[in-house]
Design a protein around this nucleic acid. Structure first.
Lengths: 132, 132
DNA sequence: ATATCTGTTATACAACAAATATAACAGTTG
DNA sequence: CAACTGTTATATTTGTTGTATAACAGATAT
């Protein structure tokens, strides 16, 4: 999977990494059971420090997306993804409400917003588009 | 309008302030032309520093949600809200994609996600529920 | 067994962001 | 003139982000 980082972004690198790995899983470019690069090799590939990758991996492990087998490597959770927990629902609401509120302010009607969400949903689930 | 801050949150206070003001406008609890408290009085009310409120106001001004009249006060933009600019669309995509990708990972199907977005949309547009 | 690969931990450092604390300035309004 | 606006400046504290090294401990391949 190709990782694209924007070093100019105000989004932390470890967050960009987490987001791209999660989208990779959502788009089935990364399948459960599939191994991810080691912290050192990924860090080297994308030109960041080992600890930055390790932070992303550790947080993804805490949320249940990946498993880390000591001395063996990092693998997309073969037991499946975490489900819709109450904690997750609260986090999702905290993320969605501000986005929806701003859309409303700017005059976006409900149908248009739903159309946009749907198109992103389709776009993610219809990857892989690895080759361009 | 009632402002609720979570001092334990990892979301910066000035961001929480911006979000709540934007949701206040979206829900029509704050109407265009309506005056907001001065930086000093709001800061005093919610128990934060003057500069924290000023940062939120300044950013809201930059995005076009409010106007700041020197020596007169802060007012919800009476010329209307900013529209759907390309910059905004990019920001919105950057905010939405990670949320949608995680929802997909966790097994939320498209209909359920759309239902959630719709319910938040309705919830925001059907405030004010000031009295509980 | 020895070298090499894992993740893990620890420490130190630089740069930056967030928030506070004071203070002062410059216009507006009562 | 006093009191209120937003604005600007400076300083300090605290926490986050990211880098840099280094070492540890277990697994694996030669």
């Amino acid at each position: 999977m190709i990782i694209r980082l924007d070093m100019q972004s105000d989004v932390p690198i470890y967050t960009q990494l987490m987001n791209q790995i999660i989208e990779g899983i959502a788009s089935k470019q990364l399948a459960p059971g599939e191994y991810l690069p080691s912290v050192r090799s990924l860090a080297s590939d994308i030109g960041v420090n080992l600890h930055t990758v390790n932070k992303a991996y550790t947080l993804l492990k805490q949320e249940g997306f990946i498993q880390i087998h000591r001395q063996k490597g990092v693998v997309v959770n073969p037991d499946g993804m975490p489900g819709i927990t109450p904690d997750y629902q609260h986090k999702q609401e905290a993320q969605l409400r501000p986005v929806i509120a701003e859309a409303i302010c700017r005059g976006m009607d409900k149908a248009e917003l739903l159309r946009i969400v749907e198109s992103f949903y389709d776009d993610i689930t219809q990857e892989p588009k690895e080759n361009a």
